[in-house]
């Protein structure tokens, strides 16, 4: 089919919206990151000056940026695998032949995914309360003394990770379930006729056949976890002692609280660079798997 007018009519609105309100701002942000755009320039754009790579060099020597970088990486490298592991475990349990009411468990586990992150953070802030929180109460039964989860710089990030796993694992679990359903049942039947035990089947059939799903999930999870923001914003404001400051939270504070928009734009591009690198590495891994 062709019909130039129809194509323009159908594609025009979407391309205009994406072009003007996505691609154009991306280019503008890139330009912005090479200027000293600040609160004075906000009133009159002419006050912004080109400063070359100054924002980027300043960023590399800013201890706050490195702190935010390490925190985000900690969230990503511990929280990511942890939540994927829990997702896989839950999917395997639910898909087990021994289990009925699959729909009930699937829905129950998925429920936190659809809830509003801000509201969840408000609830968990109280679960982590040092004196009245449910978590410390439960831990007191096994003889663990009260921990000030969100007020202690060593525990604040683990607390945020735990909450994120609770909130997110249901999403990847559903994708894993879809992946498991795609594995032909005959493979398992053949394996058990050959005398393979359950663990062996897991190792030789389930894990390799789930590999593409796992890479897809890893990319999605990494992109999402790099953008950590609401949890520290609501629960800790980045504290204590900046132990939960994330890259996006720092970007928000620099850009929209102190109006250092040039510097903030540089931060945004560094975030983009990390996500791009992570995606490339993971799709390279995927290609290698498919080749072998």
């Amino acid at each position: 089919m062709d019909g130039k007018r129809a194509v323009i009519l159908f594609l025009g609105p979407a391309l205009a919206a994406i072009g003007v309100f996505f691609f154009l701002p991306v280019l503008a942000a890139f330009a912005l990151s090479f200027t000293d755009f600040d609160i004075y320039a906000l009133g009159n754009f002419e006050f912004a000056r080109f400063v070359g790579f100054k924002n980027y060099t300043q960023l590399l020597t800013d201890p706050l940026f490195w702190k935010a970088f390490r925190n985000t990486l900690e969230f990503l490298l511990i929280g990511g695998p942890l939540s994927i592991g829990v997702s896989l475990g839950a999917a395997l349990m639910i898909q087990s032949k021994l289990v009925r009411w699959k729909g009930f468990f699937r829905t129950a586990y998925f429920t936190p995914v659809v809830t509003t992150l801000v509201a969840v953070a408000v609830i968990w802030r109280f679960i982590y309360h040092p004196r009245f929180g449910l978590l410390n109460y439960l831990l007191s039964f096994v003889g663990i003394g009260a921990v000030d989860w969100l007020g202690d710089q060593h525990w604040a990030m683990p607390a945020i990770i735990l909450m994120a796993v609770w909130k997110n694992f249901g999403y990847n679990m559903v994708i894993f379930i879809a992946g498991l359903q795609n594995i032909p049942a005959e493979l398992y039947e053949a394996a058990s006729i050959d005398g393979a035990g359950r663990l062996q089947q897991l190792r030789t059939i389930t894990v390799p056949l789930l590999a593409p799903t796992t890479v897809y999930i890893s990319i999605l999870t990494m992109i999402g976890y790099f953008q950590l923001f609401s949890e520290p914003y609501v629960m800790t404001q980045g504290g204590p002692l900046n132990s939960t400051l994330s890259i996006v939270l720092l970007m928000y504070q620099q850009g929209f609280r102190w109006w250092n928009m040039g510097y903030s734009a540089a931060l945004a591009f560094v975030l983009f660079a990390f996500i791009l690198m992570g995606s490339l590495v993971q799709s390279r891994i995927q290609k290698r798997w498919e080749a072998s």
Binding site: I18, F21, F22, F23, L24, P25, V26, A28, A29, L32, L42, I223, F226, Q227, V248, M251, G255, F256, M261, S264, A265, A268, F269, L271, F272, I275, L276, S279
Partner: peptide, 16 residues
């Protein structure tokens, strides 16, 4: 373009 995080667009979008 889906790999570009939306945070990148937020500063210029706000100015626009």
């Amino acid at each position: 373009s889906m790999v570009i995080p939306s945070q990148v667009t937020m500063l210029p979008l706000f100015l626009m």
